[in-house]
């Protein structure tokens, strides 16, 4: 029997019974039904699966369930509070910082983690922070604009 693993997911405690070496992305998508987190490479190379673990950006395709026991996970579904969009989401919306949208959850989560640490970042710092996230549609310029605007407008994410 797999031992249950407990963690906090989008503000609520959950317990799942899955092998501890199962990758978090499958636990989220398959077991918990949170499909906003995407799968692009399964190898830590594209960032589509980015979620926050204790407010740090983490690649859920390369993070085992056992490693998040007792931690707090935030996915794209948990970002809007009481139906109110997070400033990063709002910025992506306002800038149309996506096309197909497949990279978008990962982009938003990566940007969120970065802005949390460094709300007043330079463009070059934002570029470096987002380097691990791939966008095939070429929304890069708008993504950078969006991330930059969050820092400017609000002094950072909540």
């Amino acid at each position: 029997m797999d031992a249950p693993v407990s963690f906090v997911l989008n503000g609520k405690p959950v317990t799942v019974t899955s092998p501890r070496d199962r990758m978090l992305v499958w636990v989220l998508r398959d077991e918990l039904g949170l499909t906003g987190t995407k799968v692009g490479c399964e190898a830590g190379l594209c960032g589509a699966c980015t979620v926050l673990v204790d407010q740090e950006a983490v690649l859920s395709c390369s993070t085992a369930l056992g490693d998040v026991a007792g931690k707090s996970i935030l996915t794209i579904e948990g970002l809007a509070l009481d139906g109110k969009l997070d400033p990063v989401q709002k910025a992506f919306q306002d800038h149309h910082a996506f096309q197909c949208g497949y990279c978008t959850s990962g982009m938003i989560m990566a940007a969120w983690a970065f802005l949390k640490k460094k709300p007043k970042a330079t463009r070059a710092e934002i570029v470096a922070a987002m380097e691990g996230n791939i966008c095939r549609c070429g929304a890069h310029v708008r993504i950078l604009d969006a991330v930059e605007s969050v820092g400017k407008a609000t002094g950072g994410v909540r």
């Binding site: 998508r29 949170l34 499909t35 906003g36 794209i76 969009l85 992506f92 919306q93 996506f98």
Partner: peptide, 20 residues
């Protein structure tokens, strides 16, 4: 405004692999 914006920035947009 893009009509697909809200679905895509909230993770609600369903792609084929997201159908359950």
């Amino acid at each position: 405004p893009r009509k697909d914006a809200l679905a895509k920035i909230t993770g609600a947009a369903k792609y084929a692999g997201d159908l359950r």
